[in-house]
């Protein structure tokens, strides 16, 4: 089973990469572009029962893939 984990910075934390990309694209003349947010996407392949796999994905996301000080995450079965 494959699971997706998306990690992103909390809204109150400055996303330097997103800001740099937005600024550069706006310089090209794309003035309707208001913001860019950069996220990380992890795809985890898990062997095992569905319920255990979901627990494991949740645990790995919470404890390792995201840093709860500055980031939030979403998980989804693919």
């Amino acid at each position: 089973m494959n699971y997706e984990v998306i990690v992103e910075l909390k809204p109150e934390v400055l996303d330097t990469q997103g800001r740099a990309i937005k600024d550069a694209l706006q310089r090209l003349g794309h003035h309707d572009l208001k913001s860019v947010k950069v996220t990380k996407r992890f795809v985890l392949e898990i062997d095992g029962k569905e319920v255990d796999a979901e627990k494991l994905v949740q645990k790995l996301a919470e404890e390792h893939l995201a840093n709860s000080v500055a980031e939030t995450f979403l998980t989804k079965r693919l």
Binding site: L9, L14, T16, Q17, A20, N67, V69
Partner: peptide, 11 residues
């Protein structure tokens, strides 16, 4: 230790 170290604001 508490907190986190993030990319410099200056990029």
């Amino acid at each position: 230790l508490p907190g986190a170290l993030l990319k410099n604001a200056s990029r």
